[in-house]
Amino acid sequence: MHIIEISSEKRFQVEITLAEGTDCKSLKKERYFFDWSEERNYEVYKLQIVGSNNILGLISLERIPVEWRVHIRLLTVSKENKGQQKKYGRIAGNLIAHAAKIAVQDYGELACVSLMPKSQIAHHYISEYKMLPTGMTLSLEGPEILNLINRYSHE
C-alpha cells in the first residue's frame, strides 16, 4: 500500500491500523473535520506513512454481519491533504480499500462496502471507485470490490 506525494510523485509505503484511545484524544476537528470521539464505539482506522506517527487519514466502520456488509460511517483525510493543494494522493482510496478487505475477509463473495455521500460528490465515488447507487447509498460489491483491493494492494 502506498500514497503519492503530489509535488514529487514519490511513493510512500503506508500502514492502516486501529486507532487507539490515545489517538482519539489527538484527533482534533480542526485537522480531521469531524468529532472522532463520537466514534469510540466503532472501529476507527488510521493511515500513516510507515515509521511516522502523523495520521494522514481516518475511517470509521460498522460491520453489519446479517447483511454481509461493512458500512463506512466517517471518512476523512487530514487538513493538509484536502483540496487542490493537498500533499499526498490516494489516502481515501487506501482507506476504502481497507474497508473492502475487511468485508471480503468476513463475507467472501457476499461482501459489500457501503457509504452515503452527499449527492454533490456521489458521482466522484461512482466514477473513481465504481460504486453502485441504490437510493441514497453507494455500494461496492462483486468483482468491483476485488478490483479495488487489487488496485490499492500493489506496492
Binding site: F34, H71, T76, K82, G83, K118, I121, H124, Y125
Partner: peptide, 14 residues
Amino acid sequence: TNPTEDPEFGVDSR
C-alpha cells in the same frame, strides 16, 4: 459540507 470542496476530504455517512 461545501460542494466545491475536494470530494475526498470527508464523508459523514452515518
